[in-house]
Design a protein around this nucleic acid. Sequence first.
DNA 1: CAACTTTGTAAATTGATTAAACAAACTTAG
DNA 2: CTAAGTTTGTTTAATCAATTTACAAAGTTG
Lengths: 390, 390
Amino acid sequence: MKQTGDLNLVKKINKSIVLQHIRSTSPVSRARLAELTGLTKATVSSLVAELIESRLVDEIGAGESSGGRKPVMLLFNGTAGYAVGVDLGINYIWAALTDLNGNTVEQYRLKHNNTSVESVIADLIACIREVAGRAPDSAYGIVGIGIGIPGFSDERGNVLFAPNLGWENVPLQQLIEQEFAIPVVIDNEANAGAVGEKQFGAGQEAAHLVYVSIGMGIGTGIIIKDELFRGSSGFSGEMGHISIQYDGKPCRCGNAGCWELYASENALLEQARAVMPGGDVSVETLIRLAEEGDLAAIECFERLGRYLGIGIVNIINSFNPELIVIGGRLAEAERWLRGAVHEVVERRSLPYPRAQLQVQFSALGAGATVLGACSFAIGKFFASTKVSVE
Amino acid sequence: MKQTGDLNLVKKINKSIVLQHIRSTSPVSRARLAELTGLTKATVSSLVAELIESRLVDEIGAGESSGGRKPVMLLFNGTAGYAVGVDLGINYIWAALTDLNGNTVEQYRLKHNNTSVESVIADLIACIREVAGRAPDSAYGIVGIGIGIPGFSDERGNVLFAPNLGWENVPLQQLIEQEFAIPVVIDNEANAGAVGEKQFGAGQEAAHLVYVSIGMGIGTGIIIKDELFRGSSGFSGEMGHISIQYDGKPCRCGNAGCWELYASENALLEQARAVMPGGDVSVETLIRLAEEGDLAAIECFERLGRYLGIGIVNIINSFNPELIVIGGRLAEAERWLRGAVHEVVERRSLPYPRAQLQVQFSALGAGATVLGACSFAIGKFFASTKVSVE
DNA sequence: CAACTTTGTAAATTGATTAAACAAACTTAG
DNA sequence: CTAAGTTTGTTTAATCAATTTACAAAGTTG
């Protein structure tokens, strides 16, 4: 039984359209909203009255007249509620508190080295409690919690498999919801990053974008028609395991020549160890060396950039996105990766899909995941009947 | 200015839901439709009355009683109109006429060897006129024309580039619409095939499917959430140009090691020429040889199957579809390809996205493109205000 | 200051869905 | 064969969100 149409649905659609316009165009008047949406002034007035009633919109006084009565300007009330977002890493937990506009107001970071379920969950709860406790008073309080995890989850928020944590079948959403009694959303770290870039970063104008998260492996988050694409069973975006060399190095996933064997942090470090024997090799030291002009380090990054480009060409030719955002910790090495990536993309991708394409490095950096996790929570809040239709 | 909600929209949504249920469940009664859709019996009655009025639905008399008054059974009237679908090949044109259910009622095939725009357009118009002329009388007549082309097109139906025809910037939709004065839809051959399989073939249950068309090259059509995914500018699905060997054979597209250099008809023939020198080599002869048990021919197919599998693994890991359909002329060699493809997929793809996945060879064969083209026309007809809301 | 604009609200109208009641048609138990 | 109960599909009145039309309030401009 699908969603059928009735008057309730109509109101929900229109209210959501009006709210979206206020969010993106504020400050804005009722009359201008009527123009923008195509609804009548009367309808807009009525919907705005309810939005003000529910504390999501505020009147902030008169605006500039354009030859008649002055408009009353409306503002989206971003501080009507707050969301918690968590980047659950392999050896760290990073929690942030944002308002409904996605502005970060509190942060908390924790290192952990015990990846057992019990230990991590305890740390996770502590982190959430920490930032949530610091939330200012507001109409809706904490509206939800979003968590980005290094692994796979299903639509009910169970962590199916997180290789680097050694987790299998952990009902994470249920556990956290029990603890805090507010809605919790679980998703892959790269998916969260993609949403973060889409909502608050480089991708705000792009309907179709692919976020490439370079860490120990490579994960990708795919946004299609402004929505996260999760695949038929929630496992889309494992493009790190696209083979770019069919008879290449064997990967523990069963495939051979996987992209992430050539273009991840691990691949970078492996290469660096080979050409700079004996040295203490880490991403930080390599960046420092490159900054000092060390040619070997720079060549390591450029080599990585070329492999990165090869996989990105595959993404371009198959998805034809408007934007590809390169994120993760290696995005900090943009200076040395950029040239190689663009050169390979220019040379190897098909001209038509490339024509309107942009390849950018993340502006949000590692924060994309946390912000995306917040956005999950905010999105769930707005999708819930609580605000859409009272 | 987006689509806002009003009473018209509500009716359009509900009418479309009712019609869809009648299409998929017929024969069906009004009372059962009310149960299925969640609408009230009164609403269903009113909408059905309009659908009968517009000739899309017929009453076919009483059904079996289940302990009360006998229901009046309703049937979708598939012959209320007809659609023309065309597979525009490199050296052939194949046109079909189907009813609104997608049942083929007429066909016409034409060989051509002059690929100039004028010559092909003339042949195309002749083919369409031929099958359209044989259409039975009906309420709506020919509702539209769909054309699958071997190349790229934009949303206005201009052929941007068709390498094997040597076409660039041909306003095909406009030309054909001028000639016949009915709606025309142009899309890529692989996209048409994907829609054909989705509507009438193996993919009717699958919300996410990828159709792999193996011809002289490899094209793919991607269906996401029951809808064709065209990418941000209409060039998605060029997965034939995914590199599966980053330092492999150079491709004329600018990339190296493209999948289609290893797994297309051309690749098969090239390999066959290498191992069976002097022989007259074509797909037909290779299939005949394989049927006769020729080991060299069989090995050629199996080798192709393994390369096919490598690319399919990439599709699985990136898209996580429910279904992958292998189509095009080489689908006829299923007997010898099947084993190798499945073996590679089992061994190399990630377990989670593979779990609920099916890899099938096309049941519609080369007909998928023609049927998909018809489906474009039928879909446009139903989307038009003509029937949705009068 | 009069004429014109612009903004936002109010009242009456429209139209699709729903809920409730009902008539017609049919089955079944005794 | 009859009475009771079921199922189907229509009718009628009520609901409710948007629209249309009108208008009051608050500006600007010459």
